[in-house]
Design a protein around this nucleic acid. Sequence first.
DNA 1: TGTAATGTTTACCAATCGGTCAAATTATCT
DNA 2: AGATAATTTGACCGATTGGTAAACATTACA
Lengths: 216, 216
Amino acid sequence: MAIPRAAKTLRRTRIQEEKEEQILEAALDVFSARGFRGSTIDQIAEVAGMSKPNLLYYFRTKEAMHRALIDRVLYTWLEPLRAFDAEGNPEEEIRSYIRRKLEMARDFPRESRLFANEVLQGAPHIEDELKGPLKELVDEKAEVIRAWAKSGKIIKCDPYHLIFSIWSTTQHYADFDVQVRAVLGQEHAGEGRFEDAARFLEQLFIGGLRPDHSES
Amino acid sequence: MAIPRAAKTLRRTRIQEEKEEQILEAALDVFSARGFRGSTIDQIAEVAGMSKPNLLYYFRTKEAMHRALIDRVLYTWLEPLRAFDAEGNPEEEIRSYIRRKLEMARDFPRESRLFANEVLQGAPHIEDELKGPLKELVDEKAEVIRAWAKSGKIIKCDPYHLIFSIWSTTQHYADFDVQVRAVLGQEHAGEGRFEDAARFLEQLFIGGLRPDHSES
DNA sequence: TGTAATGTTTACCAATCGGTCAAATTATCT
DNA sequence: AGATAATTTGACCGATTGGTAAACATTACA
């Protein structure tokens, strides 16, 4: 007889780990492509290659799958911002932050779209994470940027909107990939657009934040 | 007896115009907030204040509502880019494009989210529009920007990625509004964040594109 | 190897989905 | 006013939704 699922976390079997991995992988596929409401358990089950009740043996509800996915992905997703170093050279820190974020857009577009879908639809499942851990991290890094601006290392600017602009420009290449491809056309079908984007964004941000030209 | 709906477009009654308006307004509310798949006809009917069969009297399917909405919104949505003027002063053109796009993010966030939802989920309903009219318009404006760069009026840069970066940074304030609010916290709850964003983005783009500092 | 715990499947459920139909109601026009 | 066309509604349909129950199969461990 199966044990109650609430007790399952006490000890994990090999099968549990494997299957939960399979499920979350499939769930990432589906949720990121169709959003929470637009996804069905059957779709996830099919991608995962198992039956629907079997899925529900490991995750009691659709929400539980989504939650587990968010929890697993959120930490790594914020890693680049966490690496932002107050001691480093501002120009180099910003440049490498942009690079890292662009690499994530290229290598982990599903994760980006998962959050984009969620936030776009009002963040009903991750409101706490946004107002808590995310805000705290951003507040901390904004303070770093503000200090750089104050000491004249970069132009005086609103650090929050600087962070927003880096987020939006880089994640754009994951979240709006279809549009980017459509506009660029066949000739940029390869991954070269990420290199072009990196060049442009570095130019834009480094040039736009450099304090040397005339400033009021 | 009701006339076949295919013939309805031949002549429009006052009631038809009013009701179709009501429906599209409600559909914009719902589709923009939950995406196409996540939305239900019942939800739209409730927001519109009419019964489901009554909705379906004016639009035969959920897809038809969505299509009508896209068609209605697409033209005006591209208006700011269309206004981009080759004859104008580059700096001023870019500045005012950013302003217009930010105003649209502030005043028409639902329209922005409608497209964002659609593109994010692979643009299943607007692929033709992206590859057709949108690409053509962008190609045209990219040529303008390229000419500016060639003549030294702005820095040498990839015009497509410049356009993408303006799109993403401005629309971010509509599409990711919940996140922006969460990070900025209570103190920026008002609409002041759009002013701050405008200041920052103008500074970034004008500074980042200005050709006067050393360039290879 | 036996047995208890774990894992999987088939059959099913009530609720909701997009959409239809025919009857009832309202507006329009002579 | 009366007839006709336009509009609205309640009742309903089959398909799909998230989720359950219980029988069945497999694994792990003494």
